[in-house]
């Protein structure tokens, strides 16, 4: 009985995941991705197509060319699983262990110093003038 319930839960989850509304929203996102790739290709920009697509989506939403409700079903799911999508890249680091092993100390110093600097500079500007 409980096994049946479990399978039913999975079925509902998948039905919700690939609902028509979500697929339509995903199609919209793919259109923006396509536009971004096209713009990058035509103008030979040094910025990747999906970042250009992201900007276009933001502008389209802001100018009310498209309603957020149309995008949200897919964008929420994509962002929910965002971590999952870049994990294989993180795992790929294992291939380069030998390559960066000799540099781990200077890398750590540079990165820690730069991160602390970024933290402080951003915070102090906002705090000092943000009264």
């Amino acid at each position: 009985m409980s096994r049946y319930k479990f399978l039913n839960n999975i079925r509902h989850y998948i039905e919700d995941l690939v609902s028509l509304k979500r697929l339509k929203a995903f199609l919209y996102i793919l259109v923006f991705l396509g536009i971004g790739e096209l713009v990058r290709f035509v103008f030979k920009l040094p910025i990747s197509g999906n970042i250009i697509g992201m900007l276009f989506l933001f502008i389209a939403l802001k100018q009310k060319w498209i309603n957020l409700d149309k995008i949200k079903p897919a964008s929420d799911k994509l962002l929910e699983f965002l971590v999952l999508f870049f994990i294989p890249y993180g795992v790929g680091l294992m291939v380069y262990f030998d390559l960066i092993r000799d540099y781990w100390l200077p890398i750590s110093i540079a990165i820690i110093a730069s991160t602390l600097l970024t933290l402080y500079v951003t915070a102090i500007i906002l705090q000092k003038f943000g009264k």
């Binding site: 923006f32 971004g36 933001f58 962002l79």
Partner: peptide, 22 residues
């Protein structure tokens, strides 16, 4: 298998535009 997951980074970055707007 991992590369199929990373393909979704394309649309996921576009989806950040909606998050940014919100």
């Amino acid at each position: 298998g991992g590369k199929y997951l990373t393909y979704f980074l394309g649309p996921a970055v576009v989806a950040l535009g909606a998050f940014f707007y919100e």
